[in-house]
Nucleic acid binder design. Sequence first.
RNA 1: GGGGGAGUGUCCCGAGCGGCAAAGGGGGCGGACUGUAAAUCCGCUGGCUAAGCCUUCGUAGGUUCGAGUCCUACCUCCCCCA
Length: 424
Amino acid sequence: MSDDFQPQSEFLRVLIERGFVHQCSDFAGLDALAKAGGLTAYIGFDCTAPSLHVGSLVQIMLLRWLQKTGGRPIALMGGGTTRVGDPSGKDESRKLISLETIEANKQGIKRIFSKFLDFGEDAPSSCACAAIMQDNSEWLGALNYIDFLREIGRHFSVNRMLAMDSVKMRLERDQELSFLEFNYMCLQAYDFVELHKRQSCVLQMGGSDQWGNIITGLDLGRRLGTGQLYALTSPLLTTASGAKMGKTAQGAVWLDAGMLPVFDYWQYWRNCEDRDVGRFLKLFTELPLEDIARLEALGGAEINEAKKVLATEATAMVHGRAAASSASEAARQTFEEGALAEDLPFVEIPRGDIEAGLGALAAFVRAGLVASTGEARRQVKGGGLRINDQTLTDERAMIGAGDLNEGSVKLSLGKKRHVLLRAV
RNA sequence: GGGGGAGUGUCCCGAGCGGCAAAGGGGGCGGACUGUAAAUCCGCUGGCUAAGCCUUCGUAGGUUCGAGUCCUACCUCCCCCA
């Protein structure tokens, strides 16, 4: 996508080297701006969930690199646009989300950003490129319909909108596209112009599925006289075997420790496919490229060392170095020594319940490892459950005080999923 | 507005003579093999106080000993005509 373009700016150089770039409206122009310094760019995040997950990590890292290379990142909360719903890349409309939910989600998402970007709250002096958080409900919420149509709407060509991939896909497949959703790109385009006006923002970044929406913003800007605006998109990430990033059977890989234990987050990266290690190290850690090249070159079982580095570095980014180290250590004890690690995910259970004798099947349900006792029974048949590393063979087995090991019982499902039942 | 078709195991797709907890895929989970990888092979993939019981086939009724299967109404979606 970047062909043989040789960036002069650190910003574009880093992005291209690390594999963040899919498309850009004008490499040379953007490069010059970035080189001059003080480049302001934004990425919008919809408030559709109470936290962000790994799927948004590329975008978050884009903003982080922007800041590290001297630019000013804006994280735009889609408090307003989430009320509409982006049809891009989706084959059916999303349900409307209530205002309260959007607001709650927004708060959760803000917390994530504070870990990746410096908003200049601690050191007001460093404010030249302090990150900014904006919420488009601020301006979208106040829009008057007719004014909007007259001032903004007249610049949009329905002919062109119909030709956009996101719209075309729905039309071709005969899938409903409501007028509400059809407006999404107009609002997003307007956001760009508004951020240019308010913050002198000249670049919008996003996933490759956002290209159409972003370009629409560029066009609108030209018509409204913002001066040249720029678009840059990142590749849509999938794992080497084609699965979407950030989704596992247990659910999304959340960036919030309350929604996904740090240990599990670490494990997510540890378990990536061999072929993905190098790519992920470049995107999701800040290790120097030379180090990554070395790790990537490891062959056979040695690649596991690279995966551990990936897991620890990626985890440290979100949850902090200390938490990453203890997750790493817990994994080492669990997988390499078969020992009981204190830092495994745990579920608290009244001591009395254990002393009174707890059905083994029920215990696995309480630990959240299986959904029902029926599933637990099936797992027993398949030899998938273990208590303190002893395979469970009797459905009627009980867990008692004697199974407590430093106050905990270790329950395992398969080789990888472990939960401590902690007596309290 | 008129005519035709479709909604199945709450992950998805998809069979289904009136006896059905319901074929088959995909996905997922577990096991074996490995390196906590990929590929491959095997098993499982409604709930429960479990050889029994309970709840599932768009919704609500009806026929029947018995309904996913037949009848009626309604809802939703798609196609053709206007």
